[in-house]
Computed example of a mutant assay.
Amino acid sequence: MSTLTSGDYVIRAIRPDDWPRVKELRLSALRDPIAHLAFLETYEEGAAKPDSFYQERAARSAEEESVARQFIAEAPDGGWAGSVTVLMEEAGMTDWAGYAVDRRQGHVVGVFIRPEHRGTGLIKALFDAGVAWARERGAERVRLLVHEENARAQGAYRKVGFVPSGVVVPYVRDEAQNEMEFVLEWPS
Rank of each mutant, 00 (worst) to 15 (best):
A58K: 02
D51E: 14
K49I: 06
A62S: 06
E56K: 13
R69Y: 02
Q70N: 09
V67L: 15
E45Q: 14
S66P: 03
E64N: 07
A59V: 04
R69S: 07
R60T: 09
A58P: 03
E44I: 04
A48N: 12
A73C: 03
I72C: 03
R57Q: 12
G46Q: 07
I72D: 00
K49R: 15
Y54F: 14
K49S: 05
A58Y: 01
P50F: 05
E56W: 09
F71M: 02
S66H: 01
E63C: 05
F53Y: 15
R69P: 02
G46F: 05
R60H: 14
A73T: 02
E44R: 08
A58G: 05
A48E: 13
F53T: 15
A47T: 07
R69W: 03
D51V: 06
R69T: 10
D51W: 08
A59K: 09
R60S: 12
E65I: 10
E63I: 01
E65W: 10
S52F: 07
E64C: 04
R57N: 07
R69L: 09
E56N: 12
F71T: 00
E56M: 12
Q70F: 06
F53I: 12
A62P: 03
E64W: 08
K49E: 11
A48R: 12
Q55I: 06
E64L: 11
F53H: 15
E64V: 12
E63P: 02
K49L: 15
Q55S: 06
S66V: 01
V67Q: 14
E56G: 10
Y54R: 04
R57C: 07
A73N: 01
A59R: 14
Y54N: 05
Y54H: 05
D51K: 07
S61Y: 03
